[in-house]
Simulated scan of single mutants.
Amino acid sequence: MPLFPNLPARSQFVRQASNLWRVKQLFHQHLCHQLRADTCNVHLIDGFPIELCKLTRVRKCKSFKGDANHSYCASKDMKYFGFHGHLLVDGRGIPVEFTVTAANVDERDAAYEIINNIKGLLIGDKGLIRPILNQECSQADIYLQTPLRKNMKDERPKWVVKQLMNVRRKIETTIGQLVEYFDIEHINCRDLWHLTSRMGRKILGLSIGGYLNLELGKDSMKFEGMLAG
């Protein structure tokens, strides 16, 4: 291509992009600080499946040997083979922390990795129900709230639980955006190094979109105020 004489091969570009994983991580942390997502008093946590291949092809799959595993996704009512993404967002749906584990890792165990720098209200689903987790969150000034199972007595007013679940839907919207725009539930690489880089790039992409929307919204409000004045 004459306009880009030094354009590298695709494989070289992919390696260079992967090598910048730490830069992407720092950039994302900077955006969170700018948006005050890391100091927000309300956070939401949820997970989603990351499928490596169809179950019928597991025996032939040579990628991620010893890393990927089998699991079951209750929200989609499906068995799958691969990994599990764990996402933490603020009350507006801006991604704050993210990690990937093998599909069979308990999300209550993975939660410790992404909630260690937050305070205030944390809203999750039934998968986070564990007395010791509630106790440790309380000691860290984290107020964990989840819906309870049918065989558990809920002393909270129904309107409070309903409001909590309405707020929690924001993270489902965020995950839906990651799936629709970034195809985050599928893997297009063959090792953990590239997987980590790709996932970080997708989370960063959504954070940049959220940042631009919020900043454009502020500018629009300022412009409307000038017109009104």
Rank of each mutant, 00 (worst) to 15 (best):
D191K: 12
K150D: 02
N19G: 09
F64A: 08
F64H: 11
M226S: 10
N188C: 10
P2R: 05
H28I: 05
K54P: 14
Q139E: 06
L206E: 00
K54T: 12
P147A: 00
D191P: 13
F48V: 04
T174H: 03
N166K: 14
Q163L: 14
F98P: 00
V161S: 09
S63M: 10
D38A: 01
L178I: 10
L44G: 01
D46E: 00
V105E: 05
T101V: 08
M199A: 00
P95N: 03
G200L: 11
N151H: 06
D154Q: 08
H84Y: 05
I118F: 00
R156L: 02
A103S: 08
E51A: 15
L44P: 12
F64E: 02
P49K: 13
L44V: 02
G127L: 08
S63V: 13
T146N: 05
P95L: 04
T196W: 01
S197A: 14
R59K: 14
S11E: 02
K162H: 01
C40T: 00
S220I: 11
Y143M: 14
G176C: 15
R168L: 07
Y112V: 07
R57A: 06
E224H: 08
F48L: 06
I118M: 00
V100I: 07
N117T: 06
L144Y: 01
F223T: 09
Y181N: 04
L227N: 06
A74K: 15
D67G: 08
I45H: 03
V160W: 05
E97N: 13
Q177Y: 11
K60V: 07
K62L: 09
R168C: 08
I171N: 05
L144S: 07
K218Q: 05
A102G: 15
E51H: 13
Q163P: 02
C137W: 00
T146V: 07
W21A: 04
R36Y: 03
E51I: 14
Y112C: 08
I208A: 04
L212T: 06
I208S: 07
G209T: 12
S18N: 13
H28D: 04
H30Q: 09
R92F: 11
R59M: 10
N116A: 13
G66R: 05
F64Q: 14
G47N: 12
R130E: 13
A103E: 04
L214A: 15
D191W: 03
G225F: 03
V100L: 05
I203Y: 02
D109C: 03
V89P: 11
H28G: 13
L214Y: 11
N116M: 12
K158E: 06
D109M: 08
T146R: 13
W21P: 12
K162C: 00
I171S: 02
S75Y: 01
A9L: 01
